[in-house]
Design a protein around this nucleic acid. Structure first.
Lengths: 235, 235
DNA sequence: CGAGGCATTGAGTCTGATCAATTTGAGTGG
DNA sequence: CCACTCAAATTGATCAGACTCAATGCCTCG
């Protein structure tokens, strides 16, 4: 019997493949190849052949769209257990780069597509995730096109607070929460479609208004969650 | 034997259901309900329960995201044979409104989801379309966030020219092409995340530069396709 | 022929980008 | 432990592109 490479998988119960039984998983495992990438390293380049897809095991990746003259926009972030890549596309549309050290479980695209077609349950799961990603992308279009700089930054802070596992989201308990920003000002600017300077100024403004406290460049405390939510428009 | 409601379907060979055999199609037909909507009428409202999905038979629909204070952004356009709606979502995320008179083949969401799960071939087709829509949404994020007003308008003109079936896209033959704009200046502004006035000024500028000719507000002739493409950055 | 919605054009304003100079702070090595 | 380094972040001054407000012109359809 072969060794179960999924045994110690950190996202075993959250990734796409969680819907497979042992036998099916063994088949998929046969296609899989583990890959480590260092922070800053690019996993796939826009324009090249779409040769692989992957499950993200650990770390954070960004998907970047760029113009010919070098303007960049982060169009998606991927976290552990997320699916990455562009099945059914001949060519990669967006450059995928690691923001932190990361680990991937990669599959050659064609065989993976065939596997999807033969395992409807997983295909359906990927469909659900893709639909959700589409909704998020569309919501972000509103942010990019119509929100002011202040609203954009407030919204992103709330997003990151929620993702960091704090309770700064909706409800009542309004205790201050502290967390680490998972990205630089530059990345924030790339996500929001603005410049580093403007992001910085907006953060300074929030600090001045007593809404947040900045302790070093990467640690934020949300003091007035209500005020922050009010500034974020809450589509 | 029941009457085949798909017999005269205008998108029979392009819609999702083209992958079904006669028997499967009959089952789906049992769920389907035809619906006509007039230009300007809203098919589903953001925030309400996600109760139906649909195939678009004729006409053009827009999907709109909006802020609480009324700012709007068109996040997607749907054309005949496109799939519309948000399966696997409890709540509608984006208001869908008809830009022209339109006809839909609607399905109740839950039974449609069950059908999808039981007909992997169609599920896979929807997955492929959703992946493509996601790519397009992400590409549009770059446009919204990083292109100048002039670039946005040039890009949209090329898009519309291609969709109108002209040859203004990539290749060499640079003969002037004429077509009808399928939308108002207001809709163009809503798609591009700008104002009506700015759209109009950019069109005037293109006219002044001899790149296009405007014959009435809705008819455009692209005289210098090369120049237009150059202005559109061509991500 | 008139009415009303679109579209164009103009003038002035403002937000966010750009250019430029410090400041901060995390990591290094003496 | 302290300087040193280098990238990241902040802050300031200026500028430009797009928005706003306002007026006018143009089609389309009764």
């Amino acid at each position: 019997m072969s060794i179960d490479v999924c045994a110690g998988c950190p996202v075993r119960d959250r990734a796409l493949c969680r819907c497979l039984n042992d036998q099916e998983r063994l088949v998929l495992t046969g296609l899989c190849q583990r890959r480590r990438v260092a922070a800053g390293e690019t996993v796939m380049w826009a324009g090249e052949d779409s040769r692989i897809c992957a499950n993200l095991l650990s770390g954070v990746l960004k998907a970047v769209a760029a113009t010919a003259d070098g303007r960049e926009q982060i169009v998606g972030l991927s976290y552990p257990a997320d699916f990455v890549g562009e099945p059914y596309a001949a060519e990669i549309g967006f450059t995928i780069t690691a923001l932190t050290d990361a680990e991937l479980c990669t599959f050659p695209r064609r065989p993976f597509e065939r596997f999807l077609e033969q395992h409807a349950r997983m295909g359906n799961l990927l469909l659900q995730r893709t639909l959700k990603a589409l909704s998020e992308a569309r919501a972000r279009m509103l942010t990019l096109a119509r929100l002011s700089a202040g609203e954009k930054v407030a919204e992103l802070l709330l997003d990151m607070a929620v993702r960091a596992g704090t309770s700064a989201g909706r409800p009542g308990l309004e205790e201050p929460v502290t967390f680490e920003l998972p990205m630089t000002r530059g990345h924030m600017a790339d996500v929001l479609g603005m410049t580093i300077e403007t992001v910085s100024r907006q953060l300074t403004k929030l600090k001045g208004a007593g809404v947040i406290v900045l302790s070093g460049a990467r640690t934020v405390t949300i003091v007035d969650a209500r005020g922050l939510r009010r500034r974020a428009v809450a589509a």
